[in-house]
Design a protein around this nucleic acid. Structure first.
Lengths: 220, 220
DNA sequence: AAAAATCCTTGATCTAAGTCAAACGGCCAC
DNA sequence: GTGGCCGTTTGACTTAGATCAAGGATTTTT
């Protein structure tokens, strides 16, 4: 949460996030076409957001964990344009967007915070465009693992161990790859001694190798 | 510009966009690493935004035309993370972000407007992720042409004729394709009687064919 | 505990798009 | 005008990743 608030401010801020909502694993927090009312701050659990076309093709647009905000897609048209699916039992803070806007007007720090969250999402998606448009399977996968473990580490988890909350298929959808390719890349990295994999559990044995695959230039 | 303002309000709004800036073809409006100060509303001209990696690979993240806003990438870190290049002589309104935020607090309509612009960009990028992750060269290209002509039409230009402001290479970079593939797709569509091409000039002869390539489901 | 349904892996083959190469056509500078 | 430089096109060939297929492992349901 943003800094620079006094206790009185905190009181008001609390009002915005008063209500909570639980979503079971596999459940939808919102889906394409739902009227937009609120942003959601993830308290616990793990989500994916995805869009799907009439022809059935799906694209996972992101994976979100505790502390991250989902629902920004709904602001522009007052309807959500993607699905938010819980990948494990989750709890979110419901933040009615009208309240967010009202308090933003009152507290510049909050306003700035909201703007940064949206800008961060834009920049993240720029990076995904680079991944999808220019990079090879192994590079995408290395980037994915590094990003995931970095975000987990920022939340107090290990830098080297993680338990994947998503299937190979979902990883593939996010990275623009088919399940088989994801599976082969897991195997390849495992054979090369870069990671150790047992189902959803992954241990990163050689983070530098991953970074090198993602961006060889930084090691010269 | 948003509706719901009285003349007094307009006065204040004008202050935010008081300064203008010209950028010559090929010139940079801002580039990666520049301190972020302002958003830019395009008055005339045409831009591309792109990010580049140390290894030289480039990804065009968007093409922007009159009325569109660029610079949102800078909000999150106070530094720009992409380059904005004018593809033809251009003029922009410089909107210092501090002013934008200040006036947003005063005018809920403006606040809402800013939020929608950012959300629209997020949703647009979601769509690009679908293009890059799931769609084939012809589908991407059809989507690109339809999107471009639709935006031009909204600005009073023809629904069927356009002059491309970008090179084949830049189109390819945006769509995750190589120049040769872009060129071949132009030729293919031309042979199929879907478009007529002469250099940068493109005439869409069969818009339904394009829509069908982009999304066959809508025609059943 | 058995059955069913997913999810994951691996091998063999195919293909869309990339790469390499060459030539052409505008356009700008001189 | 003409010479050089991009940007573009087209052809021949290669390849990364997709597709197809089958089997094995885990989790969920009954």
């Amino acid at each position: 949460m943003p800094v620079g608030f006094n206790p009185d401010d905190m009181q008001k801020l609390d009002e915005v996030v008063a209500t909570r909502r639980r979503v079971k694993r596999g459940g939808l927090l919102f889906s394409n076409g739902d009227p937009f009312t609120s942003l959601y701050a993830i308290r616990t659990g793990f989500f994916k957001t995805c869009i799907s076309r009439e022809d059935g093709r799906e694209q996972v647009t992101g994976f979100q964990m505790a502390g991250e905000i989902i629902g920004l897609d709904g602001i522009v048209s007052d309807y959500h344009s993607c699905n938010a699916v819980a990948l494990e039992d989750a709890e979110v803070c419901v933040m009615p967007f009208a309240n967010v806007e009202e308090l933003s007007r009152e507290f510049p720090v909050l306003q700035r915070h909201v703007h940064k969250i949206m800008s961060r999402e834009i920049v993240r998606e720029n990076g995904v465009m680079m991944l999808l448009g220019n990079m090879r399977a192994e590079e995408r996968f290395a980037a994915f693992l590094l990003n995931l473990v970095q975000r987990l580490h920022a939340r107090g988890f290990s830098q080297s161990e993680l338990v994947l909350r998503m299937t190979r298929e979902e990883i593939g959808s996010y990275l623009g790859l088919k399940v088989e390719t994801v599976s082969r890349t897991f195997s390849k990295f495992s054979e090369d001694g870069i990671i150790e994999v047992k189902q959803r559990y992954v241990r990163i044995l050689d983070p530098d190798a991953l970074k090198k695959i993602f961006n060889p230039q930084t090691f010269y």
